[in-house]
Design a binder for these strands. Structure first.
Lengths: 113, 113
DNA sequence: GATCATACCTAAGTATCCGAGGTATGAACT
DNA sequence: AGTTCATACCTCGGATACTTAGGTATGATC
């Protein structure tokens, strides 16, 4: 993967995480695997990125945490707060707009021969 | 603009710059204004971001520089190198793929009432 | 001759991401 | 019983990027 594309992916993590949480509570470790599998490995953030991100979302009150014991093992489940839901909605709208703008700016990719 | 969206925009800068250079040579100051105007202010990177970026692209041999005097004033014009063109093509393909994957993961934005 | 727009640049501080570690538990196998 | 594996959490250091806020210099305008 080239340098420019690497930069591109950064920052999408937060959006994907918020989106995933909308469908229901998730714990970090499972969320990571789920996103990785669903996108066929296209999006796979490291733990070193995910855990600090979740903490950051928490301090911004976009997500809330809840302890649960599953199969005798502790898990920290994250859920969207109302503020998180609101932010997610904003994000999706902005993302759509951004995408439209980008599509206007960017010439289409040449088909691969 | 909310925090998550801010993160989103970061990293798109390089792609946009490379794309702009494909159409022809540009100098930093003019490029900045052009992108800002063309996207109606949606993408506006600061000079502190643009100049270091161009230098980084140059050390990676993705762009080449050329001095020109226009209206008696010095300008540094940047052009895509073959390697830069190749990288841009890759980027566009990856971006398209990324976008498809993201569209699958992300629920569509609710229409604004 | 003062001011504005142009045109380049850098430095300090903040933030993010990744890689590489660490800890601890339950399950499975030997 | 002991080892190994998968799960599940976490942190720290280094590299990189972006913003803010500056600095310098020239041509044009008033």
């Amino acid at each position: 993967m080239n340098w420019t594309t690497v930069q591109l992916r950064k920052g999408l993590t937060a959006l994907i995480v918020l989106d995933a949480l909308e469908a229901g509570a998730w714990y970090a470790y499972g969320l990571r695997r789920a996103v990785h599998d669903q996108t066929h490995g296209l999006f796979s953030f490291s733990e070193g990125a995910l855990y600090p991100l979740l903490h950051a979302l928490r301090t911004r009150r976009l997500v809330a945490v809840q302890r649960r014991k599953v199969h005798g093992r502790e898990r920290l489940y994250y859920t969207l707060t109302p503020k998180g839901q609101q932010t997610l909605d904003e994000c999706r709208r902005e993302w759509a707009g951004l995408n439209r703008a980008l599509a206007q700016v960017l010439r289409p990719a040449k088909r691969q021969p």
